Amino acid sequence: MTYGADRIYAEVSYVAYHFHWSPDAILDMEHAQRLRYVQEIAAINTRLNEER
C-alpha cells in the first residue's frame, strides 16, 4: 500500500508547524509514529478550542 504524497506533505507540515521540528526529522519517523503525533496535536487543539 502506498501513502499519497499530498497526505505526507499535510502531516509533515502539520507537525512541523506545531512542534517546530524539521521536515527531515518528521519524515524519518515511521508512519504510525508520525500519525500519532498528528492525532495528539489535533487533540491538544480541540481541548484548547473547547476552553475558549
Rank of each mutant, 00 (worst) to 15 (best):
Glu30Tyr: 10
Arg7Gln: 11
Tyr37Gln: 00
His18Cys: 07
Pro23Asp: 04
Tyr37Cys: 05
Ala10Ile: 04
Val15Phe: 11
Trp21Ala: 13
Phe19Leu: 15
Arg34Leu: 10
Asp6Glu: 15
Asp28Val: 05
Arg34Cys: 07
Asp24Pro: 09
Arg7Lys: 11
Ser13Asp: 15
Asp24Leu: 04
Ser22Asn: 06
Arg7Asn: 14
Val38Met: 00
Arg36Cys: 10
Leu35Pro: 09
Val12Trp: 01
Asp6Ser: 14
Gln39Trp: 08
Ser13Gly: 15
Tyr17Ala: 12
Glu30Ala: 00
Ala16His: 03
Val12Asn: 05
Tyr14Asp: 10
Val15Cys: 03
His31Lys: 02
Asn45Asp: 10
Gln33His: 14
Ala5Asn: 13
Glu40Asn: 12
Val38Ala: 03
Tyr14Gln: 08
His31Gly: 09
Arg7Glu: 13
Ala32Gly: 15
Ser13Pro: 09
Tyr17Arg: 05
Ala10Lys: 14
Arg36Val: 11
Asn45Lys: 04
Ser22Thr: 14
Asp28Arg: 04
Val12Gly: 05
Gln33Asp: 09
Asn45Glu: 09
Trp21Ile: 11
Glu30Ile: 06
Arg7Val: 15
Trp21Asn: 05
Ile8Arg: 01
Glu30Gln: 05
Ser22Phe: 13
His31Ile: 00
Tyr14Cys: 07
Ala32Leu: 04
Glu11Pro: 08
Arg36Gly: 15
Val38Glu: 08
Ala5Pro: 14
Trp21Lys: 03
Phe19Pro: 09
His20Phe: 08
Val12Cys: 10
Asp24Asn: 03
Ile41Asn: 04
Ala43Arg: 02
Ile44Arg: 08
Glu30Arg: 05
Gln39Ala: 07
Ile26Glu: 00
Met29Asn: 00
Ile41Met: 06
Ile8Asn: 06
Tyr17Pro: 00
His31Tyr: 05
Tyr37Arg: 01
Glu30Trp: 06
Arg36Met: 10
Leu35Cys: 12
Pro23Tyr: 06
Ile26His: 01
His20Gly: 10
Ser13Tyr: 14
Arg7Gly: 13
Asp6Gly: 15
Ala42Met: 03
Glu11Gln: 12
Met29Trp: 13
Glu40Tyr: 07
Arg34Met: 09
Tyr14Val: 01
Ile8Gly: 01
His31Asn: 02
Ile41Leu: 06
Arg36Asn: 14
Ala32Met: 02
Glu30Val: 01
His31Met: 01
Ser22His: 03
Gln33Leu: 10
Asp24Cys: 11
Ala5Tyr: 08
Glu30Leu: 01
Ala5Leu: 15
Arg7Ser: 15
Ala25Phe: 12
Leu27Arg: 01
Trp21Met: 11
Tyr37Phe: 11
Arg34Tyr: 06
Ile44Asn: 11
Ala25Thr: 12
Asp28Met: 03
Tyr14Glu: 04
Val38Trp: 06
Tyr17Ser: 08
Trp21His: 07
Ile8His: 00
Asp24Val: 12
Ile8Ala: 09
Ile41Tyr: 05
Val12Ile: 02
Gln39Lys: 02
Tyr14Pro: 04
Val15Gln: 01
Arg34Val: 05
Ile44His: 07
Asn45Cys: 04
Asp6Cys: 15
Tyr37Gly: 03
His18Ala: 11
Val12Asp: 00
Arg34His: 00
